[in-house]
Simulated assay, not measured.
Amino acid sequence: MFKHEGNFMSDSKLRILVFGATGQQGGSVASALLKAGWQVRAFVRDPASSKSVALRDAGVELMQGAFADVESVRRAMNGVNGIFSVQPSSGQGPTLGLTDEEEERYGIAIADLAVESGVKHLVYTSTGAVGAGPTGMGHFDSKARIEDHIRTLPITASIVRPAAFMEMLVMPGFGLDEGRFNFFARPDQQMQLLAVEDIGKFVAAIFADPVRFGGKTLEIASDTVTGRDLEALFTEAAGRPIAYSRFSDEVLTANPFLRKLTELLDEGRLAGKADIDALRELNPDLQSFRSWLAGSGRKAFIEALGKAGAWDYGHA
């Protein structure tokens, strides 16, 4: 289904501009593009930060700027063939994120500037919650509006809609330090999850084949689990019992944000719609939640087992 039909990589020196390269999604994309032989340029606020320096040392070209500085964005786009666009959102908390209005404005501006700059291929990362009609959550609906705008533009564009990140499950506050795990799903309810590391591999494949993926929206996920699966997998990884239960009614009543996310899962909006078998053809190294817990997620999981703290969606 996902065999390459294009040959965007005939020139091995094509350059991709990556927004958010010091964060989770952009960092995954920058790493995967480097491994695939692309030239990578990163748009960063502080070239002297430890994450920016690590990117530079890995071979990434750094371009300093800010979303609000249109000229810096325009300069960063000069001479690039493709752009990976991601913006912080209000869902990441007041310290890390933008307001919903800022996220929408900057996401649209980047797409418009890509057209102005003659960029060949724009890849925008949205969210798996986007679908028919608004969700009622600003940081999801802002992405839907950016998607809608991109589809009106005269540019080859691809949209990826990530499922919930596996990394979110090992944040403090879900109870792992107390031998339990509370989450959105009922014990028998399915929910797709995505390893952040897999995002970059999908995006690299999309950039490599604009003929196949231009104009397409791709739901991406790495695995599907139920609440019972999480109980078994966490118990296996911890070497001791980890009991699973859905958030209690008391918790959901006290936290409107959690309650709304839980409702969206029940409605199917957060359950995930990715064709994982087809995605495995695109990325044969697709990670299951079990393999992620044993591999790149192991360190964070062990830390979560011994770290108490309040649930903080801002670090998801």
Rank of each mutant, 00 (worst) to 15 (best):
L62H: 07
A66W: 00
K51Y: 00
N7C: 05
E250C: 00
I159P: 05
S291C: 00
E116H: 10
R298W: 05
N81Y: 12
R151E: 13
A232T: 04
F202I: 15
T156M: 09
D198P: 03
A238D: 01
L293E: 01
V86G: 02
G175A: 09
A132F: 10
T217L: 02
T235Y: 08
R280G: 14
M171H: 01
M191F: 06
V211N: 10
E5M: 15
L193A: 05
G82V: 09
A237F: 01
G97K: 13
L230V: 08
W38P: 00
R105M: 13
L33G: 05
I150D: 02
I16A: 12
D249C: 00
A294E: 13
L305E: 02
D100R: 05
G214W: 09
I146L: 05
R151M: 11
L122G: 06
E267G: 01
R298T: 06
S52F: 08
E5Y: 12
E267A: 15
P284S: 08
A114R: 06
G297S: 10
R105I: 03
F184K: 04
D209P: 05
S142A: 15
T127R: 03
G91N: 01
R145T: 08
M191S: 06
T22V: 05
A185G: 03
V115T: 10
G79K: 07
R246K: 11
A300K: 13
Q64C: 01
E178Q: 15
A310T: 14
A157R: 10
L218K: 03
W38H: 10
G79A: 00
H149G: 02
V203Y: 08
Q189R: 09
K120T: 11
A304L: 02
M63Q: 12
H121K: 14
M166S: 02
L264Q: 12
A316P: 00
G306N: 15
F19H: 13
I108L: 07
P187R: 15
S49E: 04
K307M: 03
V70K: 15
L98W: 04
L258D: 01
T156K: 14
G309N: 04
G295K: 05
N182V: 10
A238V: 08
L258Q: 05
Q24D: 12
P94Q: 12
G118L: 12
D11L: 08
S89M: 04
D275Y: 06
P94I: 14
E101W: 02
A310Y: 02
L98I: 09
D223H: 10
A42M: 13
V80I: 08
L96M: 13
D249H: 04
S28A: 10
M63C: 14
M191W: 06
G27I: 07
E104H: 06
K260C: 01
F140H: 14
E219W: 07
V53D: 00
F84R: 03
F8E: 07
G200L: 13
A42G: 06
A237E: 04
A195Y: 12
A58W: 07
F202N: 11
P241H: 04
G82I: 10
Q92F: 15
L264T: 09
F67T: 02
F67A: 03
L176I: 07
L34V: 11
